[in-house]
Amino acid sequence: MSDEHGHGTGRLVTALAWALLLFGLWLWGRGVTDVEPGTGGTATGDVLAIDGSVDPALLPRPAKPLGDAVPQRVDIPGLGVQAPVVARGLDARGAIDPPPYSQAGVVGWYGAGPGPGAAGAALLVGHVDTATRPAVFYRLSTVKPGQKVRVFRADGKVAEFTVDDVRVLPRDGFDAQQAYGQRRPGRAELRLITCGGTFDRASRSYTANVVVSAYLTGTAG
């Protein structure tokens, strides 16, 4: 087998793996909006029209990506959120398995992807509510560009991210690449994801996902 053919095969395998991953994330994007069985679907206040854009010139410059490390806690000072982070894998459908509703204050990290602070887009997901109370990402849709998100890592470093984009993506026609794909090559990026839109009682699910995008702008520790 020639080197050229080998490289071509490697690129094909990588492309197929990425396509399968995006398909699994697409399933997750649809499935994460499902509410706990038996809930009535408490209101979230999320809307489908969020002006989440900002002039990039007003935001800080990206920081150099860190090495990979496991996240332990995420802080969102503007929301008063300080939540433990646990690694999550894929469920039987090939979609990311979020934390159980019994851990409504816990954030799930897609452990097969990059750690927050490493190059690429790290994915964090949390519930918006449960049958009886708001959950960890209940107010995620109120985050604004320029606000900070801090992730405490197992290597002792604190990765500080700046929010640059907030989107509410409808469940119908969900675009996994738009939600989870890296926005700018070479950056360390972060996605915070929860349910959004309105609660559809017929399907027992929310109609959209809130996707907050941030990028690494500083490091402590």
Rank of each mutant, 00 (worst) to 15 (best):
P56W: 09
G41D: 02
L22F: 14
T162L: 10
D155H: 11
H127C: 07
L90G: 01
Q147P: 06
V210I: 14
A135H: 00
L123C: 03
D172A: 14
L192T: 05
V54Q: 01
R150K: 15
G6F: 14
G94K: 09
Y206I: 00
P71H: 05
F174E: 03
L190S: 04
T39H: 13
K64Y: 01
G173T: 10
T33F: 09
P65T: 11
A63E: 13
P170Y: 06
H127T: 09
F137R: 06
G111R: 15
P77R: 07
H7M: 04
R184Q: 14
Y215D: 00
I96L: 13
P37Q: 08
T33L: 12
V210G: 00
L66T: 11
V210Y: 10
D129T: 11
G108K: 03
A87H: 01
F174Q: 09
R88H: 03
S203G: 00
D3S: 10
Y101T: 01
V151N: 08
L16H: 05
V106Q: 00
A202T: 12
L123W: 09
S53P: 01
G181C: 12
P84K: 07
T142K: 11
C195I: 03
N209T: 12
Y215S: 03
G29W: 07
Q103H: 11
R88L: 08
Q103N: 12
G126L: 05
A95D: 03
L12A: 13
V163N: 01
A131T: 01
V136I: 15
R73H: 12
S2W: 03
R184E: 13
V70G: 01
R133V: 04
L169A: 00
R61F: 05
W26A: 11
T142I: 04
Q182P: 08
G24H: 08
L21P: 00
A154Y: 08
V74T: 05
V107S: 01
A119R: 14
P100S: 09
F152K: 12
D175W: 07
A131Q: 11
G67P: 08
V47P: 00
G218A: 15
G38I: 07
K157F: 08
V81W: 02
S205K: 08
